[in-house]
Design a binder for these strands. Structure first.
Length: 593
RNA sequence: GGCGGUAUAGCUCAGUUGGUUAGAGCGUGGGAAUCAUAAUCCUAAAGUCGCAAGUUCAAGUCUUGCUAUCGCUACCA
């Protein structure tokens, strides 16, 4: 499952090689933090994207992990009477547990304290140092003796050159440090970002980064001199044991160190201009606070190393809670336990759906409000896809004995079609004729359209269009059922020559469209969609009982109307319990305790 | 302080190079239907497009000022 590194690719389906590989990362999370909605959200977006790309048939590698080399980790460990490593391990496990709970399908979980990371990160830095791209220089800054740390120029100025914490005067100090020649890459960065070779999303963030680059780039310090009594924690500057590499610069390397192995290099290949293989896509997802490192410093480092640069750096905004910014002082962080409580009441897939569709993917923050959660849950899931599958399953059980009788082309209201004419006649006979007898439904074309939309949006790392396309299909089925009223026809079968055939045709089209909708919804709701496939005996997954098992074919094939994986005559359809039970808006929010 | 973004129906947001009655989803009102988780379908109402001035035959869409709000301001993760 999720936390098991899938290091071997032997289970990769054959079709996976038809497309370029796809590498998706989240930041590695600071191990002193407790997993909260922020960590879960970024990783969920990555998971939905990874699942969607796998569904398209791509060979995906999805990485997350923990950042463990901060000095504060040593302190926190000491405060808790543990060794830094034991403390880090304990907290890394909390992230792993949280992510397992969220149903994430990451292929690996990297910890920066692992040798595989440290040795390679160290090698990259050595390479840069040997090339004089990392050089020894002098850092002049404002030092806060009471806190034993430097403060930034701006912070120093804002606080009138006094310690922001204690108010004692700051000292101007000069220190010997190593620097990275970021200033060398100003022109290159501008060109690379402007050309779209490096996509920074959303657009607003790209402009922010470009604006800041335009103000000029300075070389950045990447190390600090090791002082007497410093803990041995982190990566030492190659060939200079008196300096330690700053955590963040070593941490960035995790994206490359983890796939810098023979079997994984396909996700991050060193490419030449005439490379015939399709270029893999490398997508870094993160929250907006760490965009600068990922959009500027990291690509420049990679460029200096002669490595491929990421194709997309996506920085989403923050969640706020019930209209208020989450902060430690307010103590209103939505922690993993709150999400667990929501999942226990509404289903994990409902939590995933809400976060994905209502989240701050754009440049502005989004609100996690209980009332809103229930509204979206009822509108999209209980009344939407949940109810639609219930009513269709129910009618197939009731009118067709729980078995698909025939297929059809999914087009209704057109000249040659008899099924909808029969259904309209039945409504008229029942004294409830349709308002508009010229209405047409082309469910098959709608499905094909939805598929195109999904593929186009995923090429731009957009996950929501795929989901809304799936939801739109389910909505169309609802409208079709209301119009065709198969339940009315079912009561008057003997009045019409082809009544039974018309009924079976209408129900087939409804169910087949919902099956295709469920495929598009699956990246966000893998568990309940797999449950639906079990009830409907659809063989989409290699292991029908394991929602995390690979798909048996790419989406294009799976979603083919009445195709090899479509519903077939004789296929058993079971109704089962509601996938998403309607929620009571009056009920108080689930509590973590 | 500097640079930049945003202000459009109750809520969340779309609104292309300025051009007829400003759109969607959710929520709300009315009607229909009853297969379904009282779900669904049809339909309606609701906006002086932050405020003020300007450019123009014509501005939500351009300019200026004001107000509110948000982000970035680099080496803590």
């Amino acid at each position: 499952m999720t936390q098991t590194p899938a290091t071997d690719q032997t289970n990769t389906p054959a079709h996976a090689n038809d497309h370029a590989p796809c590498y998706i990362t989240t930041p590695i999370y600071y191990v002193n933090d407790r997993p909260h909605i922020g960590h879960c959200y970024t990783t969920l977006v990555a998971d939905v994207l990874a699942r969607a790309q796998r569904l398209l048939g791509r060979d995906v590698f999805f990485l997350t992990g923990t950042d463990e080399h901060a000095e504060k980790v040593v302190k926190a460990a000491a405060d808790n009477g543990m060794s830094p490593m034991d403390w880090a391990t304990k907290n890394a496990e909390r992230f792993k547990d949280a992510f397992t709970f969220m149903g994430f399908s990451n292929d690996d979980f990297v910890r920066t304290t692992e040798d595989r990371h440290k040795t390679r990160a160290s090698a990259y830095i050595k390479k840069l140092k040997d090339a004089d791209i990392i050089y020894k220089g002098e850092y002049k800054g404002w030092y806060d003796p009471s806190q034993e740390e430097y403060v930034t120029e701006t912070t120093a100025k804002e606080n009138d050159f006094k310690s922001p914490v204690t108010g004692k005067p700051l000292e101007e100090r000069t220190e010997e440090n190593y620097f990275f020649r970021l200033s060398n890459y100003e022109t290159w960065l501008k060109a690379t970002i402007n050309s779209g070779e490096l996509k920074i999303l959303p657009e607003a963030r790209k402009n922010e980064v470009l604006g800041r680059i335009a103000q000029g780039l300075n070389d950045v310090p990447v190390s600090r001199r090791i002082k007497q009594g410093d803990p041995d924690w982190g990566v030492v500057m190659p060939d200079d044991p008196e300096h330690r590499v700053y955590v963040w610069i070593e941490a960035l390397c995790n994206y490359l160190t983890t796939v810098d192995t023979e079997d994984r290099r396909k996700y991050w290949p060193q490419r030449s201009a005439d490379d015939a293989h399709p270029a893999p896509t490398i997508t870094h997802l993160m929250a907006k606070d760490i965009l600068w490192f990922h959009a500027v410093i990291w690509p420049a480092m990679l460029h200096a190393l002669g490595e491929t640069i990421p194709s997309t750096v996506y920085a989403h905004a923050y969640w706020i809670a019930e209209g208020r910014k989450m902060s430690k002082s307010l103590g209103n962080f939505i922690e993993i336990d709150t999400l667990r409580a929501y999942a226990a009441r509404y289903h994990l897939d409902a939590v995933r759906w809400f976060l994905t569709t209502q989240g701050p993917l754009g440049p502005t923050d989004a609100d996690f409000a209980h009332a809103r959660f229930v509204e979206v849950y009822n509108a999209d899931l209980a009344n939407g896809i949940g109810n639609a599958t219930s009513r269709v399953s129910n009618m197939i059980e009731k009118y067709l004995g729980g078995e698909i009788e025939r297929t059809c082309d999914g087009r209704f209201g057109f000249e040659e079609g008899v099924a909808l004419q029969t259904a309209r006649a039945a409504r008229a006979a029942a004294g409830n004729p349709v308002d508009d007898d010229s209405r047409v439904f082309d469910l098959r074309s709608s499905c094909e359209e939805a598929l195109r939309k999904a593929e186009a949006s995923l090429a731009n790392d957009c996950i929501t269009d795929t989901l809304t396309a799936g939801k739109a299909l389910s909505d169309e089925v609802d409208a079709f059922i209301a119009y065709a009223a198969p339940f009315t026809l079912a009561k008057r079968l003997d009045e019409f020559e082809h009544g039974q055939r018309a009924l079976a045709t209408i129900l087939y089209a409804s169910a087949e469209a919902l099956r295709i909708a469920s495929l598009l919804l699956a990246p966000a709701m893998p568990f309940q969609m797999a449950e639906l496939w079990r009830r409907w005996n659809c063989n989409h997954l290699t292991l029908p009982d394991d929602p995390n098992s690979p798909f048996v074919a790419p989406l294009e094939h799976l979603a083919h109307w009445a195709g090899d994986f479509g519903l077939k005559p004789g296929q058993r359809i079971a109704k089962g319990d509601p996938l998403f039970m309607r929620a009571d808006p009056a009920e108080p929010a689930p509590s973590a305790n």
